[in-house]
Each structure stands twice: as structure tokens, then as C-alpha cells.
Amino acid sequence: MSLDAATVRRIASLARLRVPEDQLPRLGQELNAILGWIEQLNEVNTGGVEPLTGSAALAMRMREDVVNDGAQPEAVLSNAPERIDAFYAVPKVVE
């Protein structure tokens, strides 16, 4: 597997990460080196093996379906880069 500039550009776009055009080739090389190294996993026979998503106890805990926090708009908004009243402000998304 080899990543060309177009693929790197596409992944960067999926990740919402601005990558200057002149950095694409070098980044592609770096990612290829990592992916090439990762390829050795293909040597492992994983037939019939269940994937392990994590090492915590498998059963998810349930909690009471109740409101236990909230009504703290000032705390929630205290780090907002831009706000209008009790709202986060972003560039216009609907024409």
C-alpha cells in the first residue's frame, strides 16, 4: 500500500486538517513508512479470533436514567472562542 499526494489530501480532508500542498509528498512518505511497518501484521493468522476492543469488563454498566447535572451555561461557555448570549458562535452555515 502506498499513499500518493491525492490520497493524503483526501485523508486530511476527512480529518478536517489543513495540510499545505508543499507538505503532502513528505507527509505521504512518512505515512507510507509507518504503514509499511504495520503491514507485518499480515503474517499473523487471526482466523477465528474475536476482535478485542478493550480490556475493561465486557458488560457495560447501566445507570439511572435521570438528570444529574446541567443548568450551568456560564461554566459550559466559559472557554468559548466566540459566543453570542448563551450560544457558541460559528461562521454562517445556512444561507
Partner: peptide, 30 residues
């Protein structure tokens, strides 16, 4: 961090999920 976000996005992207991410989870089980 940018490098790892791109690797992570790639291995989770359509067409590569099974080959990379699912494979890694199986090796993790082993």
C-alpha cells in the same frame, strides 16, 4: 499529532477498516 490523526483516519476509512483496524483488534486479542 497530525501524523497520528492522519494514520488513524486512514485505518478507519472505508475500504481499509477490516484490513487494518479489525486485524489489529484481533492481534490484540492474541
Amino acid at each position: 499529532v497530525r501524523r497520528r490523526i492522519l494514520i488513524g483516519t486512514y485505518v478507519l476509512s472505508a475500504g481499509y477498516y477490516d484490513a487494518y483496524y479489525l486485524k489489529a483488534q484481533k492481534v490484540r486479542a492474541l
